[in-house]
Amino acid sequence: MSTKNYRYDSGFSFTRVGALILRYTYLLRSSWPRLLELVYWPTVQMLTWGFIQVYISGASGRAAFAVGTLIGAMLLWDVLFRSQLGFSVSFLEEIWARNIGNLLMSPMRPSEFITALIIMSLVRLAIGLGPVAVMATIFFGFNYFALGISAALFFANLVLTGWAVGLFVSGLVMRLGLGAESLAWTVMFVLLPLTSVYYPVTILPTWLQPVAWSLPPTYVFEGLRALLIDHQIRLDLMAEAFALNIVLFAAASLAFRILLERAREAGSLMQMGE
């Protein structure tokens, strides 16, 4: 072997994961509109749903709305949506920059790439939703962090779903090119009505309810309502969501691997870019 000035990590390398995180951090730091975009839309959403909740609570006097179900659901929906978007956008940055070829021809392994995308998804969530969660407390009296262990369980389950969807969409973009990019921005909205974000599953038509229960976020939103309305911590719902998430993430990982192999077969990684 060569005695050159490099160290070869034969397995998974945190140094390479760190290199990718450094790359995305430099990118975020270089552009204040990118940072602003992370906070802007969650803030608009929070204010909109916060005022709707205030209005409905005052008009109907229903306790269900007084305890923050709407604003809580909005915050959790954004955790789901933005965990996927954070994952996908970091991936898309490589395609837009025509840099994916450089990365895939380097010693970086796909597992290291995915780990870096997951970490960046968390970083983007913290930047985007952290201030919004604080504002929700100040303006509307809804303190997400006061939900305690439930807050952590809700968060963990939703980001797992977001990463699984992000992984699958990234695989599709790798195989099909930027024609599939719009999926990164829109695919999660299919889950908005199906996972019963703002209403109980029982509102859905009977035939649609099994579909809703096959999706992990449904358990989280039902769990939120159980906590806020009935003051019950439904660990059973969280366990079921976690089990489904494990299956979903494993399936997405397999799909990503297959789509990467198909892209290598088709030679599409050589020409990928805008």
């Binding site: 490099y6 140094t15 390479r16 290199a19 990718l20 430099y26 990365l103 380097s106």
Partner: peptide, 9 residues
């Protein structure tokens, strides 16, 4: 970034 990816010391 590329130096780190390639394990440059």
């Amino acid at each position: 970034v590329f130096g780190r990816l390639y394990g440059v010391q």
